[in-house]
Amino acid sequence: MASRSLDAGVGAQALPADWRDFLALTKPRVLSLVVYTGLCGLLAAPGHIHPVLGFAAILCIALGAGAAAALNQWYEADLDAKMRRTAGRPLPAGRMERQSALHFGVGLGVFSVLLMGLATNVLAAIVLAVSILFYVLVYTVWLKRRTPQNIVIGGAAGAFPAVIGWAAVTGEINLLPALLFALVFLWTPPHSWALGLYIKSDYAAAGVPMMPVVAGQKATRLQVLLYTLPMVAAAIAPWPLGLTGAIHGVTSVILSAVFLALSARVAFSTQTDQALMKPERILFRYSILYLFLLFGALVADRVILA
């Protein structure tokens, strides 16, 4: 809409926000992967949950992730304004007041935790609350502006949904959801650093100490490969441990072999022009597909071989 100026900037008089701006605060594209892994954790869990309560659990995961994203944007409005990739978001673009984003995020987060506790069980609600607080306080407030390890430690925030989905059904956390947590935790650095390698200038302009900015491209590429190795182990481990069947096992081996090969290409690439970083772009895009297919195989294994 032409009347909704993108040039107002942080700190200027914000225009009245509409529903699209509040939706944008939840980072819908990121939300899709969060909801998907949570759903797969729920569907792969042993036992039964009523479909209505299962839907409520997934809704709570989505609302909780959206709340964390909104609070992240509330806190990082100044950083977002400095990066081309994020300058069009509601707060830096001047389409929303910061206080509105704060109230929206807090309200959404509290509601999601309370509803999860009422619909499923206390453990699932506690893990959901921890995931929101971890993303906002540990990753956004503490780590993001201070250390290149922000993605490494902060990756735990994105690893919670599958555990929450599992806990919503079973009321407990055992080895398989712990391995799923480890998988996403270890997946996050190569996924994020592959992106960071070709948008390095954005992070540098905002003063965010991402690995490519602080350590350089060569060191970051090596880190991508080094984190891929334990990630592959976590992805395949459920099969030999007898926690999943052949569908998940064979799929994890094939998908992880491709991931490892792409990571090796990134590690040994000598390209320095960000516009030409094809191995990094390919790995970033594949990493998303990798997680979708791997978690899908987990559910197929449960449904078909149950």
Rank of each mutant, 00 (worst) to 15 (best):
A70I: 12
G154I: 02
A168D: 01
Q73A: 15
V138M: 07
G207C: 11
W74D: 05
N72G: 12
A162Q: 10
L226N: 13
A261D: 08
A81S: 13
S112R: 04
S100I: 10
H50N: 14
A101M: 02
L222Y: 14
L243C: 10
A62Y: 00
L305M: 14
L59G: 00
A45T: 03
M277R: 01
A119Y: 00
A81E: 06
G196L: 07
I151R: 00
P92C: 08
V169G: 04
W187C: 00
A261F: 13
V232S: 06
S287M: 01
V152E: 01
P177V: 14
L229Y: 13
V232P: 00
R145C: 06
A156W: 14
P16G: 08
T120F: 05
A24P: 09
L225D: 04
G107H: 07
L222V: 11
H191I: 03
G9F: 12
A93P: 05
V224P: 05
Q271E: 15
T244E: 09
G41P: 02
V122S: 12
N150I: 08
R4G: 09
K218A: 15
V106Q: 01
L175M: 12
L294G: 02
V299Y: 12
Y227R: 06
I151F: 09
V138T: 08
A215N: 09
A17N: 05
R89M: 03
V232A: 06
V110K: 02
A93T: 06
A205V: 14
L291H: 06
I151D: 02
L133V: 11
P51M: 04
V10W: 03
Q73V: 11
H50Y: 13
R89Q: 12
F268Y: 15
V106R: 00
P189R: 05
V136L: 13
G109T: 09
I288A: 14
T244Y: 06
L71S: 05
A306S: 14
H191P: 02
A300F: 13
Y290M: 03
V253R: 04
A8F: 13
G245H: 07
S192Q: 13
R85T: 10
T272I: 10
F295W: 04
A194T: 03
V10D: 07
N72Y: 00
P161A: 07
A267N: 03
V213P: 01
P92L: 07
A24I: 08
I49M: 13
